[in-house]
Simulated scan of single mutants.
Amino acid sequence: MSVRAVRTVERRHRTTNCEAGTAQALPPPPPPATPPTTPAGFDSFTVAAIRRKVHSKFAAKEVMTIASLTEALMIDGIIPMATSDTSVWRLLHDMGFRYRTSKRTMYVRKETLDVVCRRINALRALKQHRERGMQVVYLDETWFTTRMHHSMKWVDTTQPATSTTYSRHVPPGEGDRFEVVAAGIADGFVEDSFLCYHTKTTSGDYHGEVNGELFLRWLTSQLLPSLAEPSVLTEESRCPTTATRKADFITWLEKHRLPFPPHATRPELLLICKRNRPQPQYIVDNTIRMWGHEVVRLPPAHPELNAIEQVWGHMKRHVRSSLQHFTRADLQARLEEAKMGVTAEVWAGAVRRSQGYEEEYWATDNIHHSIDPVIINLDSDDEEDLFLESDVE
């Protein structure tokens, strides 16, 4: 019975006795309720020892999981050796600890026709190259910082948030940033392709650090020589832009032997150049092809198709879980451990999952084998969008 029910019964009994004019003894009060016990039957001394153990992990800046905490408590003799992880999890909740995550805003971007066509062309190209017996080399770049940590962590809600015993303390700010560029196949990282260096950027976009010159130097000095094919560097074709002078329009048209009216105006010459503009050529793509390889450009916002993205995730989980001093030396040591932890099995699983996504796209996009690649030229009514400024010769 609840306290309210007992009081109601007592009040009714007293009222009835008063009306009857008799004095009757009240029934004895119910015995006090037995205080609830913890799920695993731990006493208060054990609970206090567990709290001190958790706080010591916070102070040491260790990443705490239920499994690691249970193991540490058993090693220290705080809990019996047969205690399960579930019992420790329930006890932590009764003690006021919670596993929380930071709020994150998710954005959903609708696919355009151009992105869909790029995906179809990339999937067809990958399939054709595999049928020819060529291995797929997954290439990408990523970043690591000295302040990396998991978004979710255990906190002691009985302590103020400003207390050192509230949770594991991570220094504020982004810390020092390290860029990593690498390539890999189903057996592991390509030999000598792993490049890691410290950057001085203060922006959140790490792509600005790996510029074209650095990437090309890494490509020709580390990656391509490891793929055992000769190389020759080619030039990049360019086309006039809206900033080009009329005389330069005429020179470009004559050089490419394209007819034009003798008294054509500058807008007319620009339109002729636009209609005869060659497909863009990339120095990186031409360099790779001259070494005897092919290039497949994956569509934007499709990290699931690039197996190395899953490898980055595997490495970042290790770094987030092992950083304790949050210094450059600490990060470099953890990076080396993470790299050594990416075994052939990890790479094989990442490649297998990426190919699984490819098969799903083949089915959902209704892709067929015998169709030539689709090239879409998106014309703009705005004259300023006809050519890129980077195409000026």
Rank of each mutant, 00 (worst) to 15 (best):
H198S: 10
E209M: 07
T199P: 04
R266L: 07
K246Y: 06
R217V: 02
R217Y: 01
T201N: 11
A228F: 08
T241A: 11
I250T: 06
A243M: 14
T201F: 09
D187Q: 14
A243P: 07
S203M: 13
K255H: 15
P225L: 05
L219V: 10
R245G: 13
D205N: 15
V190Q: 03
L253F: 03
L270K: 05
G212S: 10
I250D: 04
V232F: 08
P230V: 04
E268D: 11
P261Y: 02
F249Q: 03
E236H: 08
E213S: 11
P262Q: 13
S221D: 10
S203I: 14
E229C: 14
G188R: 05
L233V: 13
Y206S: 07
L224V: 05
A228T: 14
R245P: 03
T220Y: 03
V210W: 00
W218L: 05
K255N: 11
A243C: 13
K200W: 15
R238W: 08
T251M: 11
S226G: 09
L195Y: 06
R266H: 13
F215N: 04
L224M: 10
E254R: 14
A228Y: 12
L270I: 02
L219W: 05
L223H: 00
E268M: 12
E191H: 14
F249D: 05
P230I: 01
S193L: 05
R257S: 11
P225K: 01
S203W: 10
L223K: 02
E213D: 14
E229P: 03
T199K: 01
D187A: 11
T199H: 02
T244I: 08
L258A: 06
E191T: 14
H207C: 10
T242R: 09
H256I: 05
E191P: 03
P240Y: 02
P240G: 08
K255W: 09
R245K: 15
P240I: 08
A243V: 12
N211P: 08
P230M: 08
L233N: 10
P259T: 04
S193N: 01
W218H: 04
S231E: 01
R217L: 02
L219D: 00
D192A: 07
L258C: 04
T234N: 10
W218C: 06
H207G: 06
L224D: 00
